[in-house]
Design a protein around this nucleic acid. Structure first.
Lengths: 219, 219
DNA sequence: TTATAATTCGAACGAACGTTCGAATAAGCA
DNA sequence: TGCTTATTCGAACGTTCGTTCGAATTATAA
């Protein structure tokens, strides 16, 4: 028998093996806890030791599930984004009225934002923490999400024969919605549906009151 | 002659001695460069070595001007806030028409935001990086700024006999305005004055279309 | 010039960082 | 039961972190 020769282990092949495997479930748990910590301390401010403590796993053990802290953030952001876009597509399916479609968009965004407040804060707050490859993919998803909203806005504009900057309207809407994590307090503020309605009102009435070719004077 | 006895130096008394002294000017320079670095890397992500490199001063030399990295962030945020509120007060002085007063607020905010984009990003992005004492003071200034805007909104509401949530209106407005640092591109987007006008239109028309006691139906 | 105060810096401190390694344990299947 | 693979971990790695110290340098005023 030959003396024991060290065979190099094939490390870290998995990353996403089966669907709902033990590995996947544990990884999902870690992502959930990590999201909370990233939300509280920010990406750079959260140490791997913080993250391991929060999910009750040893520091070294974490690296069995992902190869770096950056990759962990990437996994969180990707999962968050994928989910929100997926839900949006489902909800838009049966709705054809342009105004309703925008209202569906707003409701979906706010609903997801408020039930996954931590994840969304991480997503909107740490959007430039990822370098090169990772960052580019997330940025693409973000652009796609913007594109969807922009298209809804254009359809609305055309249907009503209105004249306003879709870009401004979409970006203002995102601003209103994404800022919510800084102030929302369930004991003071209305529920999601009412909030979505109010923001929809502000936006839609705001852009509606300037019909094509006319300019309201402000004196 | 007595042997040389070390007299403990009175370290770090200054912090803000005279107005426009050499010390103050150099400190202002450091703050300016540090703002840029904080903006790019975030508070936690920017190291004291990054900060010292950016202002061309040695690492140790920085500590002559402030006693900790946290205090440096505090100085930046305080200066930014003080300036923006100061300018706002000046500009509101001669204006009495409620709608105009809100438009002045928006213009002032956006103007300061776009000319001091970096500082404002640091201000809105790192608002929970400061601990306890420092954080509390900045939070107070923020509340005061919110209060001013809220009051303008209430006056407008009363003057026009409207019915809407001032809180929602103010926070939506802040959202629209503060989100701007994520998208503004001077080569694509309108100038500040036009931008302020458009955001003012969206907000004011949006909240105006629901007169007291009435509810527009959305079908 | 000389004495004093203001400013700057190289070098180092201990602590915390992200990551790695090989051994130890648990799970799954024969 | 044993064998194999999947999972977990303590201990350590080299680096970088924020901060400090005392000495060196520069400005100020006599």
């Amino acid at each position: 028998m030959a003396s024991a020769v060290k065979i190099p282990r094939p490390r870290r092949i998995p990353v996403q093996v089966a669907n709902g495997s033990r590995f996947d479930r544990r990884l999902a748990e870690i992502l959930e806890h990590a999201t909370e910590v990233f939300c509280e301390k920010g990406y750079a401010g959260a140490s791997m030791r913080d993250l391991s403590r929060s999910s009750g796993m040893s520091l070294a053990g974490m690296y069995y599930y992902f190869e770096s802290k950056e990759r962990l953030l990437y996994l969180i952001q990707k999962h968050t984004f994928t989910t929100i876009v997926e839900r949006l597509r489902e909800r838009l399916e049966g709705v054809s009225h342009p105004e309703h479609r925008i209202r569906v968009f707003i409701l979906n965004h706010l609903q997801y934002f408020l039930t996954n407040q931590k994840a969304m804060k991480v997503l909107s707050h740490e959007d430039d923490a990822l370098k090169n490859g990772f960052g580019a993919e997330i940025a693409t998803m973000k652009r796609e999400y913007y594109r969807i909203c922009r298209q809804l806005m254009d359809e609305f504009k055309q249907a009503r024969n209105l004249d306003f900057s879709s870009r401004m309207a979409v970006l203002s809407l995102f601003g209103m919605m994404n800022w919510i994590y800084t102030w929302y307090n369930p004991r003071v503020d209305a529920d999601v549906a009412e909030l979505a309605r109010q923001m929809g009102d502000i936006l839609l009435d705001g852009i509606c009151s300037r019909p094509k070719g006319k300019r309201k004077s402000h004196n």
